[in-house]
């Protein structure tokens, strides 16, 4: 059994006696193995604390409902709300009848435009020829083909996760959808100022490749986030997909 499997079985408590002996032996004799296991144990403690915090937040969010004594409010608004809901259902079903077939390419073309550079002001000077600056200049000039390797390099050197966002956008423009999807997924492993925006572009990439269920998941993630960027568009696109 390889060490990764041993580790997985250890953390999921699915480890046999024999495997546990092997695990303990490796832990004592192999420093690299020990380091990895200790790191994962630390993640275990940290994620437990974070998980509790999240759950507490969830419970506290229920409290706001009790605090507002919303019963009276609900009954007051119930009638008009029901009317609005009924109208919405009618409107949506008409919409559904009209748009019952989805043309993915057309949707993509309607909604997609590459993002502007919102990260880094460009300095055009003889002295500032940093790779990053060049990447953004090329991107602004819409030389996407050239911009891709520049962003890729700059990202590898600086690990500035926002650069993945622009690399993904460039790939989308050029129709390299599968590659764009991979880059966006990598960007989503980070939490930076542009992470939520990536849900939008990843959703479009999924639309283009006819993976509509996945597109919906991304759109919902954007709509439920605090990000205001493309929120209206996301809602209207989601409606069309549903």
């Amino acid at each position: 059994m390889n060490s990764n499997e041993l580790i997985e079985n250890y953390f999921s408590k699915n480890i046999s006696k024999q495997e546990l002996l092997e695990f303990n032996h490796l832990y004592k004799t192999n420093p690299e193995f020990k380091e990895e296991v200790d790191f994962l144990k630390a993640i275990k403690s940290v994620s437990e604390v974070e998980d509790d915090v999240e759950f507490k937040k969830q419970l506290t969010s229920y409290e706001s409902e009790y605090a507002h004594k919303e019963k009276s409010i609900i009954s007051k608004w119930l009638k008009p709300l029901t009317a609005v809901a009924a109208l919405l259902i009618i409107a949506l079903s008409i919409n559904f009848l009209i748009n019952s077939s989805i043309n993915e390419d057309k949707l993509f073309a309607t909604y997609f435009e590459p993002s502007k550079n919102v990260s880094s002001p460009i300095v055009r000077s003889e002295t500032d020829k940093t790779a990053l600056n060049n990447a953004f200049i090329t991107y602004n000039e819409m030389n996407y083909e050239q911009a891709i390797p520049l962003f890729d390099n700059a990202y590898n050197n600086t690990k500035n996760s926002e650069l993945l966002f622009y690399e993904g956008n460039s790939l989308l423009v050029l129709g390299k959808i599968e590659e764009a999807i991979e880059i966006f997924k990598e960007h989503l492993t980070y939490n930076d100022a542009l992470t939520n925006r990536t849900h939008w572009y990843l959703a479009l990439a999924y639309v283009k490749t006819k993976q509509l269920e996945k597109a919906k998941v991304e759109l919902k993630a954007l709509i439920n986030s605090e990000e205001t960027f493309k929120k209206t568009e996301a809602s209207s696109l989601l409606e069309k997909l549903e």
């Binding site: 999921s12 699915n14 993640i43 940290v46 437990e48 998980d51 939490n191």
Partner: peptide, 28 residues
């Protein structure tokens, strides 16, 4: 661990969830 927590929170939500499920919750 507090320091690790600082970086953990910089991960995207789906990653935080993935690691929580794997290591704290012990899901296969």
């Amino acid at each position: 661990q507090e320091l690790l927590r600082h970086y953990f929170k910089q991960l995207g939500k789906s990653c935080q969830q993935m690691l929580t499920l794997s290591f704290y919750r012990g899901l296969t």
